[in-house]
Write a protein that binds this DNA or RNA. Structure first.
Lengths: 139, 139
DNA sequence: CCGGAATATAAGCAGCAACTTATAAAAGGA
DNA sequence: TCCTTTTATAAGTTGCTGCTTATATTCCGG
């Protein structure tokens, strides 16, 4: 449980989660997905998967010599719940709206078959795309 | 880096956010809050605040010689939205029970730890339970 | 059984991120 | 003006984290 946000803090691990967003996949496929963006070794991805597993963010299922990984919604929900505390204290009632947003994202995901849009969307969030006004850049 | 999740990955920064959960507070008060749990220098907290600010998770307002920090809901919402893609669309409606349910399910899962696939995960849960702190318990 | 495929672990190394102390900057009060 | 308070920045050190290569483990087909 300790380690959920630590695990989410790594961009490669978030990418792995995105690769698993469409459903259960063997480690090899996850490896390929990550490699489609940057060169990385098989052990590196295996280690990332371990971190995610120990954080409760993914679950594994052995099938033959393959390891099928899938997102563990519980772990994600835990992180989400923690974040929920900081959302406007006046409005825990914004929840239904939140659910709608999620529903829309899900519909999009189901309707489509290409993983490209997915990554792009998440990447935007990753890079902190928000309404400007904060141009306080400092290296 | 300007990553939201990178910023959230540090336990001290999450603690700072918790200290700001009750509303705007001057940097000095944040410093005291963090110090109430572990010894840390003033510059260290100042640097953490900068990371949070650059990630869009907090905003600052100068008042005299004081700097008043507050949570920026937009940044948190971005993270929450990203996480939302992996969560059951109906889950947000169960929000109040979320944490408890997660806890229970996790305990169950750890108890029936299957050798090979789940051993490491169970160990991680054990380690996670040590904290006992209200806010950090989750993360 | 044996070779190969899929995955995990071991061991070691490099870079960075978070800490420290020292100092600067800015504002308010005597 | 000078001192104090409050916060930020500079500079340097170090432990941890994520990477690599090499090897072990497990399973399946021939």
């Amino acid at each position: 449980m300790d380690g959920v946000f630590e695990a989410l803090g790594d961009p490669v691990r978030r990418q792995i989660l995105e690769a698993l967003a469409d459903g259960e996949q063997p480690a090899g496929r996850v490896l390929d997905a990550v490699r489609s963006r940057a060169p990385i070794s098989q052990p590196a991805v295996s280690q990332h998967l371990r971190v995610l597993r120990e954080a409760g963010l993914v679950r594994v299922r052995a099938e033959g010599t393959r390891r099928l990984y899938a997102v563990d919604p519980e772990g994600l929900a835990a992180a989400r719940t923690w974040l929920g505390r900081f959302v406007d204290p006046l409005a825990p009632f914004a929840q239904p709206l939140d659910a709608l947003e999620t529903e829309l994202a899900r519909g999009r995901r189901a309707r489509r078959a290409e993983p490209g849009t997915n990554a792009a969307e998440a990447g935007a969030v990753d890079r902190g795309m928000r309404s400007g006004e904060r141009g306080d850049r400092l290296a």
